[in-house]
Computed example of a mutant assay.
Amino acid sequence: MPIWVYALGSVFIVSLTSLAGAITLSLGPKRLQKLLFLLVAFAVGAMLGGALLHLIPESYERLGGGPRTGLLVLAGVMAFFVLEKFLHWQHQHGAPEAIEGATGHSHDHGHSHGDPLATMSIVGTVAHHLIDGAVVAAAYGVSIEAGLVTTLAVMAHEVPQQIGMFGILVYAGLKPRRALLYNFLAGLATIPGALLVLLMAGETSGDALYTWLLPVTAGSFLYVAGSDLIPELNRRHSYPATKAVGQLAMMLLGIGLMAVLLLLGHG
């Protein structure tokens, strides 16, 4: 029962990150853009640190030596590559025009994109949150430490993505309050995602299911950080040295957080 409490409580907290779009209602586009890229940098550090300091070493401990862990990590990378292609997640990652739309400067573009963009974005977000809920529940099945690390890494990634998602919905023509509501409802998909894994584990060998999903989760973190987030940091917005230093500091902060959790877990 404790696993259920920890997992469902954590995924509900993760779902609340869908309300991060409300930040855009009080910030101007320039300030928001600066904040967004710092959050992306922190997410890169948290996801890389979570995968390389926690999930992959834990996977080797549980699966032993040999290629199995590496193959499962690669399976996670490939699975997210295919999923991203299928759902066209590229619409959700920090487009400057989406940020402008979220702050009320691009309403004239919304009608040209219309419902298809909003629908695709919502479908992609629901699928994304289902997977988030599943990987968080699977991590808690391994250990409390792994679950906490996974939850924090997922949240770090979700905050900037949800700001971008909110911008996409407004850019597509939705009013800000309706966009925030739809984003929150899509975020609640973390709960059935977690329940699915918990129920499957209850009917089969739960420990084996959790163990095999752990390196797949690590692979997904490596893919998202390397394929989606780091390229965002290397776009034209990141050329000034001061911004690069700030992003590096935030990446190190994310890695440092995961290192501290590692020390506390072994303390």
Results as ranks from 00 to 15, higher is better:
S112R: 15
M200Q: 04
N183V: 04
M47C: 00
G45Y: 03
G65V: 10
P2F: 09
T217W: 12
D207W: 11
S205R: 14
L74N: 05
V77P: 08
L261T: 07
K85W: 14
P231I: 01
S15F: 12
A225D: 01
Y210C: 09
E61I: 11
E145Y: 13
Y223L: 05
S121V: 13
G49D: 02
T69F: 11
A156E: 11
E84M: 08
I255A: 11
A244T: 14
A20M: 11
V135G: 09
A95C: 01
F37E: 02
Y182C: 05
V224Q: 02
G164Y: 09
L174E: 13
L262W: 13
V5D: 13
A43G: 14
V224S: 02
P67Y: 13
V11Y: 04
A20N: 07
L55C: 10
D132L: 01
A7R: 07
S227E: 14
L148S: 08
K30F: 08
S238E: 14
R177D: 00
L233S: 02
P67C: 07
V11N: 11
L38A: 12
A194M: 00
L32Q: 03
A79L: 15
I3M: 02
L198H: 03
A249M: 14
L8W: 07
M165A: 10
M120G: 15
D115Y: 12
P176G: 00
E58K: 12
S106V: 02
T103K: 06
T151H: 03
D108R: 12
G265S: 02
L253P: 03
P2E: 07
F221V: 11
V73G: 06
D108F: 14
H107V: 04
N183E: 06
I122Y: 05
L130N: 04
L53A: 14
E61M: 13
G141M: 06
G226S: 15
A95S: 11
A137P: 07
G141D: 09
V136M: 01
T151Q: 01
T150Y: 08
A98C: 01
Y60K: 14
A208F: 10
S112Y: 13
A75G: 04
G76D: 00
M250T: 03
A225G: 00
M47R: 01
R177K: 09
V224C: 04
A43R: 00
I191Q: 03
E158N: 15
S121I: 09
G219K: 11
L264D: 01
F184G: 01
L48I: 08
M250P: 04
L199I: 15
P160K: 03
V135I: 15
L233F: 06
A95P: 05
I56F: 06
V154A: 03
G133L: 11
A259C: 04
G133S: 07
G101E: 02
G267V: 03
L169P: 06
P57V: 10
G141S: 09
G94D: 05
S143D: 05
V142P: 02
L152A: 02
A22D: 02
E84D: 15
A139Q: 07
I13D: 01
A137T: 01
A102C: 04
K30G: 01
T150A: 11
H237G: 08
M155V: 15
F184Y: 12
